[in-house]
Amino acid sequence: MFIVELLINACIAFTGFYIISKIIHSTQFSSSTMKSIIIGLATGLLGVLLMFKGIQVNESLRMDLRHLPLVLLAFYGIRFPLVIATGVIGSSRFLFGVTPQAFVAFIAILAISTGMIYIHRKLLNRPFLQNIALNVWALLMITIAVLINLGFNETAILLLLSTWTIGLAVGVLSSMLTLDFQILNQQVQLYKKSAELDHLTGLYNRRVWDDRTAGLEQEGRIYNVLALDIDHFKHVNDTYGHGNGDLVLQQFANILKQETRPHDITARIGGEEFMILVYDLSPQKVVKVANRIRERIATERFQLDGFPAIEVTTSIGIAHGKHVHIQQMNVLADEALYAAKQQGRNRTILFDQADQQDIAATQSSTETIHS
């Protein structure tokens, strides 16, 4: 019977760990606060379930693994859910009666969580050792609580021997499960990231650009599509080699990252062609942003391997509109970029869909040309 109960409790713990870990790594929640509350409550309920289920040591003694869910949250370093789970697990002890023993158990749970926060911070870069330390700390606090409640006698020693043996065994297995799940999730995220990002520049690739911009016309927001490429880039490749051309592309992309907002979408479409999606800016403001990027690039010294640093310029075409299909906006931005090339390069041309006009912004002035 003891072995059966042990296996049942271990299965409950492992299943709960898996579900909670999935919630922790989920990206489906729109609110981080709501996600934290759900994680905290789910972890607390898992601890309560483990407490009520328990393992019968002998006819008069039962032990439980209520501390294990707290180890999971401490390992991930998520404090708000840990506070919630601690409150749920600690308070549930009073369901057996408001007694001095219940208060001791409640304080022990608080001590376990508080110490775990410190252990997580100190052993952040040593995950397996951290997990072992978290389990040992929890068992030490449980030991103190048992000795306070039962005193130092044969019953307490038997309970503690069972608690340490089973707690460490299940705790180590749970730790290994948590580590494996974390490694698996990191690999999934790495594969996802590598599939989304251009390998050379670290910007989004064409596939992500298409995915992120699909359905923009249905959002009802003003948005701008910027099409950029590097002027005379073929000359850079032919003169300095494709390796140095790659260096120029990387430095160019870094400037785009620095000069755009975190919520703007910047992508390398192919070769020396780049696209930027900018929300909620008027034609005048988006031209100002584009010219800031263009001027920054024109004044930058691009480092090469085996050659002196060079200067490059960029031409930018912009499509500004609302309720316009993204494919049409891409075409308009490309046409504006082509116009910028035709008018001498190193300049910005904006096509305003609402006014049906091109606004040509050169290095020194801005003029309006009706289409």
Rank of each mutant, 00 (worst) to 15 (best):
55 I>T: 06
357 Q>K: 14
222 I>D: 14
265 I>T: 15
135 N>S: 14
26 S>F: 10
16 G>F: 08
144 I>V: 15
282 S>H: 03
78 I>K: 13
57 V>M: 04
332 L>T: 04
4 V>D: 10
240 Y>I: 10
44 G>W: 10
180 D>R: 12
106 F>D: 05
3 I>C: 01
196 E>A: 14
193 K>R: 15
6 L>N: 02
89 I>G: 02
355 D>S: 13
65 L>G: 04
177 L>K: 00
19 I>Q: 02
118 Y>M: 10
258 Q>N: 09
231 D>K: 01
327 Q>H: 12
33 T>Q: 10
324 V>A: 08
317 G>I: 01
82 L>D: 05
321 G>D: 06
338 Y>M: 01
8 I>E: 14
82 L>A: 15
137 W>N: 08
175 S>I: 03
225 V>W: 07
153 N>T: 06
80 F>Y: 14
89 I>E: 08
81 P>M: 09
359 I>V: 14
37 I>T: 09
251 Q>M: 06
335 E>R: 07
340 A>W: 01
347 R>A: 10
315 S>M: 05
286 V>F: 01
233 F>C: 03
326 I>R: 04
77 G>K: 09
24 I>W: 12
141 M>C: 15
194 S>E: 15
359 I>M: 13
21 S>A: 14
231 D>G: 00
191 Y>K: 12
98 V>K: 00
74 A>R: 02
313 T>Q: 11
317 G>V: 01
160 L>G: 01
253 A>S: 11
1 M>Q: 06
294 R>H: 04
218 Q>M: 11
13 A>N: 15
121 R>Y: 09
186 Q>Y: 03
235 H>T: 13
208 V>T: 12
295 E>N: 15
340 A>Q: 03
146 V>D: 14
155 T>K: 13
281 L>R: 13
248 V>G: 02
172 V>E: 05
245 G>Q: 08
332 L>E: 13
41 L>G: 00
207 R>A: 15
205 N>L: 07
198 D>S: 01
81 P>T: 11
2 F>N: 04
230 I>Y: 04
165 T>W: 05
282 S>Q: 12
215 G>C: 06
275 M>L: 11
358 D>Y: 13
93 R>E: 10
219 E>N: 05
71 V>C: 11
261 R>D: 11
229 D>L: 03
42 A>N: 02
